[in-house]
């Protein structure tokens, strides 16, 4: 079928570093994945989402509550005795723990 013969065959460009050889498109995808991971750790999560249980009141999260998430852990230094700031997890909705 001539239509398939018209599909371009592009060997792409490869980056080689010692034993490692990777195509530029794959390298870009790896870079985006790493960037996503880093951004997920550092970007603040939008506040005011429903269904988030406050660690302090036990009720729905309010604007008055302290920030949450990993960035909140970074913003709240642990107590002086080395005990981690754990109050965030006091109401994890888990049940049967087998």
């Amino acid at each position: 079928m001539h239509v398939f013969a018209s599909i371009p065959v592009d060997p792409s460009t490869y980056v080689s570093w010692g034993w490692l050889s990777i195509s530029v498109p794959n390298l870009i995808m790896v870079g985006i994945t790493v960037a996503l991971f880093v951004l997920a750790l550092v970007l603040p999560f939008p506040a005011g989402r429903g269904g988030i249980v406050s660690p302090t009141s036990g009720g729905p999260r309010t604007d008055a509550d302290p920030p949450t998430g990993d960035h909140a852990a970074a913003a709240e230094p642990p107590p002086g005795d080395g005990t981690p700031a754990v109050t965030r997890t006091s109401d994890e909705p888990t049940g049967d723990r087998r």
Partner: peptide, 11 residues
């Protein structure tokens, strides 16, 4: 309907 507060993180 609810999740613990530490779930409010992009990760």
């Amino acid at each position: 309907e609810t999740q613990p507060s530490y779930v409010a993180s992009w990760i």
